[in-house]
Amino acid sequence: MSELQIEEKMKAALEAKFQAANAIVQRKNRVWAEIEPSKLPEAMAWLKAEGYGHLATVTGFDEGENLGAYYHVTDTHVLVTLKAKTPRANPVLPSVLKTFPGGLSYELELQDMLGIKVEGLPPGQRRYPLDEDFPTDQYPLRKDWKTEEYLAKNPLFKPEAK
């Protein structure tokens, strides 16, 4: 397994330093690991110091009991994906903007689309990506949010008369 040396080393380091769970080397250039949200900013700072300086994107998810996000970080060759889960009842994730200032729109997206509160965002942010008159207590990417129900409740979205 010499060709996966970098990936295996990354996996081992994440497990040792940040107690990462379910860490796997999926294939060449792909490493996945799950970490505690409290360790996220620290892990991101470490990754950046190791040369993984590009936060490709952040994918929010809804797994039922838990909400959370995948942070896809890369040194342009190896793509490391960190998974952070947070309970649905009180979903909070720490911001990684201190390390990756370019990730602002990704974090705003977590707040708007999944209702995960991101702690440590700079104040005075406009919402993104949803429209300013979209209800603030509805989160479209949650699995229990149904497009049809939303459209049915809103008289403005009546199908156009042909």
Partner: peptide, 16 residues
Amino acid sequence: VNLGYNHRGMEKAAEG
């Protein structure tokens, strides 16, 4: 920079 004027909900649409 402010964005989001062209949001079309494609990720949600893809799930269906």
